[in-house]
Design a protein around this nucleic acid. Structure first.
Length: 265
DNA sequence: TCAGTTGTTTATAT
DNA sequence: AATATAAACAACTG
């Protein structure tokens, strides 16, 4: 679930609490908090109020009038707001409880991580080497940072140190819309292909961020990738599925094949 | 039992 | 030095 678009949805959810009290913190699973213990976490957030949250790539910086909570959602993490019928599930790891309802960090597989940071430097240490956010990055920067990696374009898109926020589904989606085969080497891409890729990434990310998740509608590769058979929403041909850069990649060999490579170069 | 799953880190090999 | 690959982390589904 959590790529840039999903985390943007969590950011908006949290942004709606701006100025509200953080509430009492309950830690149901100590293991998700990586740099302080449960009592330290609770103590640091006692009587705090939420401030405007920020997102960088797949990281959510949840500021308060005290410390900042830094969230990474792994493969299955999410933020849930439960206002009316508080009922926790076994995969709810943290809860921020107020009279109005409770905000929960939910994570089934527990690959998500939560940190407490008290300065901008600590935030930087937690998030590590991170490129500019993929949503809104200018075309020349986008190209320069991706081309700095001499690899397949799929691997470059997945590398958070180049451009931050694209995961496996969004990467496949933007490559499909740009008509680029995922195994194309970055140093083999034409000007037209870079332009198409930047364009498709911005339009995909704008729509997905607005939705708060990557759309799985009929005009989206993400909606077609689990079909049986999986068919290209554009040409109707059979989609290819193979591991690229360590991840299951789905693409259309017709729309993203050698033909389109020649046509756009 | 085995394959597969949206993310990242680590070890190892090239 | 970079890049590629697999495994590990963890948990569940079919």
């Amino acid at each position: 679930m959590p790529e840039l678009a999903d985390v943007e949805g969590f950011r908006r959810l949290l942004g709606g609490l701006d100025g509200a009290e953080v509430g009492s913190v309950e830690v149901m699973d100590q293991a998700v908090i990586r740099n302080v213990d449960a009592s330290g976490f609770r103590r640091a957030l006692r009587r705090r109020r939420w401030r405007r949250p920020e997102r960088i790539g797949k990281w959510l910086l949840a500021s308060t009038d005290g410390p900042t909570i830094v969230f990474h959602f792994g493969m299955t993490g999410s933020l849930i707001w439960d206002a009316t019928s508080p009922s926790r599930q076994g995969d709810d790891r943290l809860a921020f409880v107020t009279d109005a309802g409770e905000l929960r960090f939910r994570d089934r597989r527990r690959l998500g991580r939560v940190y407490l940071a008290t300065s901008a430097e600590e935030v930087d240490d937690v998030v590590g080497e991170l490129g500019p956010d993929a949503l809104g990055v200018a075309a020349p920067v986008f190209r320069a940072r991706l081309a700095a990696r001499r690899s397949t374009i799929k691997a470059a898109l997945l590398d958070q140190a180049g451009v931050a926020g694209l995961g496996n589904f969004l990467s496949d989606e933007v490559l499909w819309r740009a008509g680029i085969d995922p195994v194309t080497r970055t140093d083999q891409m034409s000007d037209a292909q870079w332009k198409a890729l930047h364009g498709s990434s911005q339009s995909v990310l704008r729509a997905a961020a607005r939705a708060g998740h990557t759309p799985r509608g009929p005009r989206w590769l993400t909606g077609a990738r689990w079909g049986d058979p999986a068919l290209c929403p554009s040409c109707g041909g059979r989609l290819e599925r193979r591991t690229v850069a360590g991840r299951t990649s789905v693409w259309c060999p017709i729309c993203q094949g050698a033909e389109s490579r020649r046509a756009s170069s």
